[in-house]
């Protein structure tokens, strides 16, 4: 529906029907239903433009902007509650529930979908795209130039090989956002011996045999789980292990990754 309005406005603009100040198609009520689009939108939206973020935006373990998200009403990513918020635009991930996105489109709501960032280079791209859909290009450009300058200043090299290892023996390789954060902090990967550029289950035995200089793990969870026990395995004791390092700054492609790079660099200095 919004698309039709926008199309109509474009035609109207061409015909010179509207006066200049009312021309821009800035969506007035925007709802975000994904923890990563939540943060991109909070960074770029005009005051009052973003009317709701997902409940995960307030999760201290997942969202780098959990504190800021306290200022927004939350939704749970369900079509019904989002429709009742009367949004002009809904922000979702390409991995958001397909049925929900299809339902929203069917009832005439515009949905902008953002693919998850799998590299640091995706971050300026996502910021610009958010600027575009919110009609806040200026704010996005400022964020992008600040991010790119800080990233150039933070990059280092020549620190050896690091491995990202998580609960349940899940390994993340170089072709992931987290892998790119590790690379920016100056580390190579252990892909030469274990492969898995995109990550996957990695038996502890292969991790130990690869002899990484540093093993980067998340911290202990608030509620215990069996999956985390592998991180306390004696075979990892005494090796260069940076514990409690991967946190909410590593989850989404937002400028918060700069803090992740800083913390990793500080941990090995």
């Amino acid at each position: 529906m919004w698309g039709c309005v926008r199309g109509f406005r474009t035609i109207a603009l061409a015909l010179g029907l509207f006066a200049a100040p009312t021309l821009h198609a800035e969506p007035a009520r925007v709802v975000s239903m994904n923890v990563c689009t939540d943060q991109l939108a909070m960074l770029i939206a005009a005051p009052g433009q973003l009317v709701s973020v997902s409940h995960l935006a307030r999760d201290l373990g997942l969202s780098a902007m959990a504190e800021a998200a306290e200022g927004y009403p939350v939704n749970h990513g369900r079509a019904e509650e989002i429709y009742l918020l009367e949004p002009d635009l809904v922000l979702a991930s390409t991995f958001s529930n397909r049925a929900t996105v299809a339902m929203l489109r069917r009832v005439g709501i515009e949905v902008a979908e953002f693919p998850p960032a799998t590299a640091l280079a995706d971050i300026p791209d996502r910021l610009r795209k958010m600027g575009e859909v919110l009609d806040r290009g200026g704010a996005a450009t400022d964020r992008v130039s600040a991010f790119e300058a800080a990233l150039d200043a933070n990059r280092s090299a020549g620190r050896g090989r690091a491995a990202l290892y998580g609960p349940g023996g899940y390994y993340r390789g170089g072709e992931t956002l987290a892998g790119d954060i590790v690379a920016a902090a100056g580390f190579g990967t252990i892909s030469d011996s274990v492969g898995r550029d995109y990550g996957g289950f990695l038996p502890l035995e292969l991790l130990v045999m690869a002899e990484p200089d540093l093993i980067v793990t998340p911290g202990a969870p608030e509620t215990p789980s069996r999956s985390h026990a592998v991180l306390d395995h004696p075979a990892l004791a005494g090796r260069g292990t940076a514990r409690a390092l991967t946190n909410r700054d590593w989850v989404c492609g937002t400028p918060a990754v700069l803090d992740a790079i800083d913390r990793l660099a500080a941990a090995v200095e």
């Binding site: 609960p167 023996g169 038996p203 502890l204 215990p224 789980s225 069996r226 999956s227 592998v230």
Partner: peptide, 19 residues
């Protein structure tokens, strides 16, 4: 509330000696 807990159902139902 631990996001990994639900995936552990498989281990408890089928058993494993890995790691």
């Amino acid at each position: 509330p631990n996001p990994y807990a639900a995936a552990e159902i498989v281990f408890w139902l089928l058993g494993s000696l890995a790691d």
